[in-house]
Amino acid sequence: MITLTHFLVVSACIFCIGLYAILAKRNAIMILVGIELMINAAILNFVAFGKYDKLHYGGQIFALFAIVLAAAAVAVGLAIILNVYRHYKTINPDHITDLRD
């Protein structure tokens, strides 16, 4: 029997994996992947909780919007990273440090 707790544990694990991918920051694309994992963890939570909200379906609706917004943000992010690659010939954030105090 799969209960709500199982979903929450899985989503917490996915969130942490995403966070690790971001904090390790070897590559801008990997950071985007990490962001996507974090968003998907949240979406999983929303759908799992949405089971108990039969009247408004708030969780399901939120999940749908979150998927669309994540896709839009990632599309913009990839375009910007492509631009950075054209200028720097690298996408390792540690090597892109022209702007600093």
């Binding site: 801008a28 943000a73 992010g77 910007i80 990273i81 950075v84 720097y88």
Partner: peptide, 10 residues
């Protein structure tokens, strides 16, 4: 400019 945009988006 591209660096600023990348930092912002990430």
């Amino acid at each position: 400019q591209s660096e600023a945009a990348m930092k912002y988006v990430l």
